[in-house]
Amino acid sequence: MASRRSPLFRTAVPMAALAASLVLAGCSDSATNSSGMGHETGPESQSATASASASQGTHSEQDVSFAQEMIQHHRQAVAMAEAAPSRAESQEVKDLAAKIKDEQGPEVTTMSDWLRAWGEDVPDEDMSGHASTPSASSSSSMSGMTSDEDMKKLEKLSGTAFDRAFLEMMSEHHEGAVEMARTEQTKGSYGPARDLATSIVDSQTAELDRMKKLLDKE
């Protein structure tokens, strides 16, 4: 004899199944959210996140000064490096100049982006695309900057005379940049700026050793 189930029992079964499906759906959504799936992760979203990070007060006046001054410092180094292909005699000097330009050009772009995100001024460039002459007050804080007079002298040299002058001026320039970067390492607040300062110390210290060896060969 077949057992009879009450109407209440028959109703409870589908209701339990519905409740279980809702629980499973909730778990699925939670897993999706916790794993980050279902949210935008494209380049535009990442760029917006980076810009927001730079503008949320995570930097200090030291970071601003570092970026503004190192931009000018780098631009002058790039201007010196750009003269090497046509004036240097040593291929080693030409290779070093190319490396300096390839490293420091993108760093100028990075620091300029930070300043814009922070609502700070990016140092002006002159008509040739190089850093305009810094004021007396700013140049005094930028150790290793080459004077306008020495830059003009370098532009008139060629061959081995250019090689030696380039190595001597760039060595002094690098020493100044390393000094500025070390200050940012110890006093800066913005993590990416401190990371860049560390990279500058490492790369330019290695290049200083390379230039010393080249000068010893002259």
Rank of each mutant, 00 (worst) to 15 (best):
H59K: 04
T133G: 01
L22V: 13
A98T: 07
D209P: 03
S28R: 11
M145I: 12
S3N: 15
E155N: 14
A52M: 14
A136Q: 14
A31H: 02
A193Q: 05
L18W: 09
S53F: 04
S90Y: 00
T58Q: 10
T32L: 15
V64T: 13
L115H: 11
S53Y: 08
K152L: 10
F166C: 10
T11I: 15
D195T: 15
L96D: 01
T205A: 03
A12G: 03
E155W: 02
N33P: 07
I71C: 06
A2C: 00
R10Y: 11
A83I: 14
D163S: 10
V108D: 01
Q62D: 12
S28A: 15
R75T: 00
M145W: 03
A2G: 12
A161W: 02
A50N: 05
S141D: 13
M145T: 03
Q185I: 14
G144M: 00
A50H: 08
T183G: 08
K94V: 03
R182Y: 02
A136R: 13
G26L: 10
L167Q: 00
M70F: 05
V108H: 04
L208M: 12
Q185M: 13
S34Y: 00
A177V: 02
A25S: 14
M170S: 06
S45I: 08
W118P: 08
R10W: 12
V201K: 10
P106S: 09
S90E: 02
S135M: 06
S112Y: 06
E149P: 07
M170N: 05
Q185W: 01
T110A: 10
S141E: 14
I200R: 02
A88F: 04
S53P: 00
T49G: 06
R182F: 02
D126I: 07
T58E: 09
L8E: 10
S55H: 04
M70G: 03
A54H: 00
Q56N: 12
R75L: 06
Q72T: 15
E69F: 11
S28T: 15
E155I: 11
G57K: 11
Q72K: 08
S137Q: 14
A79F: 00
S28F: 11
E107R: 10
P85Y: 00
K99A: 07
M80R: 05
S137K: 11
T110F: 08
P7I: 08
